[in-house]
Design a binder for these strands. Sequence first.
DNA 1: AGCCTAAATGAAATCGATTTCAGGGTCAAG
DNA 2: CTTGACCCTGAAATCGATTTCATTTAGGCT
Lengths: 320, 320
Amino acid sequence: MATIYDVAALAGVSPATVSRVFNGITVSAERSERVRAAAERLSFIPNRTARTLRKQSSEVIALIIPDIENPFFTALARGVEDVAQASGYSVVLCNTDEDAEKEARYLDVVVSENMAGIILAAASDLVNLTDLTRRGRPVVAVDRSLPEVDTVTVDNVAGGRDATRALVEQGFQRIACITGPTGRTTAEGRADGWREVLMTMSAAHVDPDRYLRYADFRVEGGHAAMVDLLNLPEPPDAVFVANNLMAVGALRALIEHDLTPPLVGMASFGDLPFATLSPRGVTVIPLPARLLGEAAAQLLIERLQGDDRPRQAIRLGNPA
Amino acid sequence: MATIYDVAALAGVSPATVSRVFNGITVSAERSERVRAAAERLSFIPNRTARTLRKQSSEVIALIIPDIENPFFTALARGVEDVAQASGYSVVLCNTDEDAEKEARYLDVVVSENMAGIILAAASDLVNLTDLTRRGRPVVAVDRSLPEVDTVTVDNVAGGRDATRALVEQGFQRIACITGPTGRTTAEGRADGWREVLMTMSAAHVDPDRYLRYADFRVEGGHAAMVDLLNLPEPPDAVFVANNLMAVGALRALIEHDLTPPLVGMASFGDLPFATLSPRGVTVIPLPARLLGEAAAQLLIERLQGDDRPRQAIRLGNPA
DNA sequence: AGCCTAAATGAAATCGATTTCAGGGTCAAG
DNA sequence: CTTGACCCTGAAATCGATTTCATTTAGGCT
């Protein structure tokens, strides 16, 4: 309720002086003290809306993610939050549910609330960021890269290779792959790594894509794809699953068919969330979610502080 | 970049008229059309900051939760989001990490950004909501009840009873309980239900609290508590765990000791997240997270629309 | 003592919307 | 033909901070 005008009146100074006190601009010790006392008495909380309107930018950064129920993204969010908090920014989390329309709506909100910047794991490769960039709002794409803007990702192809090689070394022959939606860069990259390894195997006289399934990065999708693979005349003896949730689904399918790993081999890109199974049997390619978030926030904050290097494309190593 | 003044100039009308067009106030069809065309050409996005400043309230509701990495709270968040979106509100998610100080900081942000209202799963029972309520911002406490404000919870005592009874019916004798931090209402309620059942059992000639452990609602806490219980001279033969994450930790401990349920009985308050284990062995008391979120959002929105009934305390039934 | 520089302060403009108030136009009833 | 009622419309005030610009004050140096 109390405004800087009230505080100013009570302290016997001008509103400008009150503003200066709260922004660390030199004010005589004696006045400064009077202002603080007055603010305290009125339990004054500065109105950020007015501040944002005048400064044309808030201290809030938006983090837009496609699935808030996926522990990968919440871990990433924790990373963003930690770094942002340390620099005095608040983070607001927006969940698009992999829906391009919801995403577009949130992007409008970002512009229209004058948020400082945005970290985006895009639901659609076709996001329109012109409203943002035209207004000079920095954008960092995380996990899923986007053209034109800074990007923080992992090496999906290498991860796919590592996972598949691990299965090969465990002696599996017919290695399937369950990946994400077609056209999604993370999904394609991981499948590419898998295919690459299989093609270079001497024994690969069959078309690997027979064992390739595109699903939706969700538990049910992984489950359905695994069931489908198990119903083949010659089912695979191992599977590389391209994300954590689909791995959960696939694992459930295997358990239902009494094929608990390592009866059938499994490798997952990203840790299995809250796994209670003993880790024997499932090979996990670590996906440093929190680090991704931290790096993205770091980069965004540098941009907010005026860094104008050319476009950065950071690729985090998989700490194999 | 474009403001209503630019749009007004291009359309040859006053800024007031532009505002009216975007707020559904009657404007002649012909002018309205000119305004829309102009806005389109300038790709005008209304500045919500200015709007909020003038209206003294934004269309954003804050959801403050203690642990964004707990699937229970993300499911709850989904419920809030769905209902809020449908009424035209955006949701911003704030993670307090069970830290009262972070929580207080976010509450200040809520005030200072003129957010419309707030849904709170409080980290501390001692939250100070006077700044909010004095300014007439509605507050709904969810999952964890608070005095003075509207509240949406489940019946914790009944849940604890049901879980414990289920273990009794499965023939277990020495039933332990791992609950949350002392003083947290949800933790105490669930433990009370457990104790109640044990006290009424004829065979309960021993003090049940010998088998009671207070942990932190997190995976590691559940694990440590379970290990501790297993190291007792006469370890329990079953355990009721008061939340999903601690259940994961306890389950891991049991598996490590080759006591996978049902070798040792287990009941969990709330679904095990992403369980890959076959459900045999672990009794689950369902916790309707999403429904909690929906109900809380529903109630908050009614308050925002002027509902002034006395304080509501909604208790969702456990769909046993 | 006098002059110059630098620091501290306040008045007023500004950010971009909403909303009150008053004026002007249209139409129907008397 | 006049009067009133009602609907559109625009001018201007308003929300609460920040910031420019001009002015005052203090202090240092010769």
